[in-house]
Write a protein that binds this DNA or RNA. Sequence first.
DNA 1: ACTGGATCCTGACTGC
DNA 2: TGCAGTCAGGATCCAG
Length: 281
Amino acid sequence: MPELPEVEVVRQGLDAVLRGLRLLRTEVRVPKLRWEVDPQLDALTRNQMVCALDRRSKVLLVALERGTLLIHLGMSGSLRRIQQPEALRTHDHLIWHFSGGLELRLHDPRRFGSVLWFAHPCVGSADSDPARSIDAHFARLGPEPFDPAFNADSLHRRSQGRKVAVKQWLMSGTPVVGVGNIYASEALYRAGIDPRRAAGRIGRHRYARLVDAIREVLRQAIEAGGSTLRDFVGSHGDPGAFQQHYAVYGRDGEACPACGAKVRRTILGQRSSFWCPRCQR
DNA sequence: ACTGGATCCTGACTGC
DNA sequence: TGCAGTCAGGATCCAG
């Protein structure tokens, strides 16, 4: 489900709810996710206060006293806050029990998500291997979309010589993070750029439009509470509403809202891409 | 160094 | 009803 806006909405919701609570116990019911959950996870995280909730790319970061929990929701993951006793559902793989009786459940039918633990390095000790740090984990990622480091100049410069379709390049995580299949289509539509165009054959001024379009569409989606398909549940249990605002995504054959031409669907990098053949060049 | 393709997994939906 | 085929929000790994 989750692209950056959905993860950000969940982060904001969880921050209000979890910060200051104590993680009492973790139940790992199904450890085989994208990567196998550490069998020691419960022992490593037990009885620690939640200090903060952050986000990097599409990864939720739960900062505890002695380290950070990374939660990636993959394609089909969702987090539910449980306050009243409620029967477990199929694919509820992890359960975190917090002080105050609050439970958080990770539900992920396709199991493309992941849960990783990074202990704070202890200064001068043997377990402060920098290769296993959070920084190393994220070292290959590009800038956050709202970071000033993401701008027309850097985008244009980094695109030079790239023959890959601009949509695939955007989704690769190198020029920018957090832009998944839906928002790549939507942002390229808003910027008037054909998703099939080679990344290296787009001018600086068009990249300036794209930077603005990416920020705009992500900001609007976050404000709308995150868009959702079937299995997204925010931390308040409210599905988001932004999917009603999709101009082209999933609208194969419908009229472009701007010019009325038929929206087309093309496969790029094995992913569906939606675009207007008249507005996008 | 780039690029395209296969891959992990389940569920919803479509057409016969 | 049942069954086969297609598709789905991500991202890593590997061969060429």
